[in-house]
Nucleic acid binder design. Structure first.
Lengths: 391, 391
DNA sequence: ATGACTTTGTTAAAATACTTGAAAAAATAA
DNA sequence: TTATTTTTTCAAGTATTTTAACAAAGTCAT
């Protein structure tokens, strides 16, 4: 990105951008790379974020697993680890575990917490980002209104950001993945549950209470199976990881010719079903195809309401690729309005399992750069977000 | 609203607001009213928009009826008229009719088009507001990519704004109706068709192609009745005005004890069904109750995805009040996620049939004030929108 | 190679949009 | 009357951006 490109995107003059960029250069947030060649005229000086400007922490708390990572300012992950835990243990225990593991990782890198500029955290519940807490989370007992950000900032003495995990997946894919440069995207996280993260007008949209994007609990069929939210026929009850696992278990016991028959029934998770499908198991493929159709129905609804330019399928189940995206696309084609459906792109995420971590990194880098800009008597400020966007 | 209130809402200092407001006072956009009394301290000077600053035109093109109005800067409608027309006649004919009727109304008021500061227009299709045209509209044959705003501005030599009608309904209710001061609202327009207008983060959200809010084509039941969009089981096919009319016609012919039996079957529209229901016809009430349940299912989906703070039911059918809102509320209570459902308010519009017209007025006043601010060497600018919001 | 052309980046002065801190104004309560 | 409270204003200063001119760095045609 050249200064001129930035000026165009931000609606400023080149002169203004020049001043801002020179400040950022001085504070080493961005670097000048080699010039690009152009058909005519002075070649632009390519600007990029300085990876060596600093490091940030990223934490992705799921329902049953936690991932933590240390990454640089370009969101490149230097070290990463994943381990099982249980969000139901409540904030104190979970935060202690997160701290423990982050400290261990830092030690391994010859660093301490002071080596990080900021830490980004994602959790599987409705987040009030400004307040730094979750409100009435369905699957996070004990976390309701616990001051997550405040207690982490007190412990680490560094800025912490808190977001919903699907939001961060959307942010990650938007900044560095399949949604780059788009104005409105939806990221569908198909894991044990199903949630959507929304970027609208280039910003995370969380809704009034942080509870936007609950696509997993759209009613697909009022007479459908019971969902653990208490209602019937939610998408999640048809196509979530648990639902897929249960169908795999039933399949294994059915006596049909399937690769899953070799596995002990209660060990079958969505992962095993996906693996069997990939290896050609027609029955397992059928399970995923059906799940894809249901997800597609819900996505068609989302498209009709939001009209995004891209829908990105992420989360564990998305790893199976075409087996699930094909029925999704077909269901959308059949059910979404023509105008929206014509212009939509439906794709799997480019960042795989890492999209949430990378989204957390983006948030952390954001606050880190803001903090750096505050310390200087610089001309930047809100501008920095755009700088990142443009990266 | 005092200067101090404005400062708080806009995140500026009182000094800054004072400067801006004084400019607006000088250009007669706002007026100082009498001071409110307060328990202690200097009483604030109440500011309000000057109704006599100017007039704007507002046009609401529906599928089969057009409303036009002349209103002042406080969105008070001075004169209004409604007449049948057919959007299918295409842009030239419809624009000519709009012009004809607006000119007549202005003549009746002793005015001409030069007496208007701006004109706001709403149409029932996906609008690209910036481009001033509709893209691939389902029910506006011949309008696709026709330069609506450009040709109107050429004809009238005044600024024209173009929006989707449901968007404008949302804007109207947000600015002067049931959604005042809220951050995220959805306005559900239940007319012949069913569409939603969205205000997110205090701004109209139209989606990537202007096709957001198509709630009428959410799939409620894949085996449901055929919709004129080509799919099966759309909400509109269950609960739209046409669907209600058809059910009323069937009811009339069924031999059941109903007020509709007295009316010639092909003259029964949704209006007659609503009227019969209001007069106590149990079968007609049942039709509306069922429609309400379906609408509620769709709204529950919308709430799960958007988490707005208010959902406003507008359009013709909403006039029946509780008969329809009660089943809607119940369906939402049963199907929406707890966190969102707890905080939501579901209500009918405060502006009745006029919400779209008032939304069009708001847009027109907005551009008019902007234009006024551009002419002056004033300190205002983007600020003006906020001023309006606060009204 | 030279000059014409194009596009990018820089500079200094001016304009704009605020903030800061103090003071004035307008009421109530003691 | 004086103290208190809150709103509004004023004047000076700061921060951010534009304007308009210019310098820099390339290509292209001759």
């Amino acid at each position: 990105m050249s200064r001129t490109d930035l000026a165009d995107r931000m609606g400023l003059t080149r002169a203004a951008v020049s001043l801002i960029v020179n400040d950022l250069l001085e504070s080493k947030v961005v670097l000048e790379a080699e010039s690009r060649s152009t058909p005519s005229g002075r070649p632009p000086i390519v600007l990029e974020i300085n990876p060596e400007r600093g490091l940030v922490g990223a934490i992705d708390m799921g329902a049953t697993h936690m991932s933590i990572a240390v990454a640089d300012f370009t969101a490149r992950i230097h070290q990463e680890s994943e381990f099982p835990f249980d969000i139901k243990d409540g904030p104190e225990v979970c935060i202690a575990k997160a701290n423990q593991n982050l400290q261990n990782m830092l030690e391994g890198l010859g660093l301490s917490i002071t080596g990080l500029s900021a830490i980004g955290l994602g959790v599987p519940g409705p987040v009030r980002t400004d307040a730094g807490m979750v409100i009435a989370p369905p699957i996070m007992p004990g976390w309701d209104q616990y001051p997550i950000r405040a207690s982490l900032e007190k412990m680490w003495k560094h800025p912490v950001t808190l977001n919903n995990d699907a939001e961060l997946g959307a942010l990650g894919e938007w900044a560095y993945g399949a949604g780059r440069g788009e104005k409105n995207i939806a990221y569908i996280k198909v894991g044990s549950g199903i949630g959507a993260g929304l970027i609208l007008n280039k910003q995370i949209y969380g809704g009034t209470m942080g509870a936007a994007g609950e696509i997993g609990h759209l009613t697909i069929d009022e007479d459908g199976p019971l969902c653990n939210c208490g209602n019937r026929g939610c998408l999640e009850a048809f196509a979530g990881g648990y639902a897929i696992a249960r169908q795999g278990q039933l399949l294994a016991k059915s006596g049909k010719r399937t690769l899953l028959a070799d596995i002990q029934s209660d060990k079958i998770t969505a992962l095993e079903v996906a693996e069997a499908a990939r290896r050609g198991d027609l029955h397992a493929q059928e399970i995923l195809r059906r799940a894809g159709t249901y997800i597609g129905i819900a996505i068609a609804g989302l498209i009709n309401l939001f009209n995004p330019s891209v829908v990105i399928i992420g989360g564990g189940v998305s790893q199976v690729g075409d087996i699930i995206t094909t029925p999704i696309r077909q269901a959308v084609r059949e059910r979404a309005m023509h105008a929206s459906e014509q212009s939509i792109r439906i794709t799997t995420g480019m960042l795989g399992r890492r999209s949430v971590l990378i989204g957390a990194t983006v948030q952390a880098v954001n606050v880190a750069i803001h903090a750096a800009a505050e310390n200087k008597n610089s001309t930047s400020k809100a501008v920095v977000i755009e700088t990142l966007e443009v990266n």
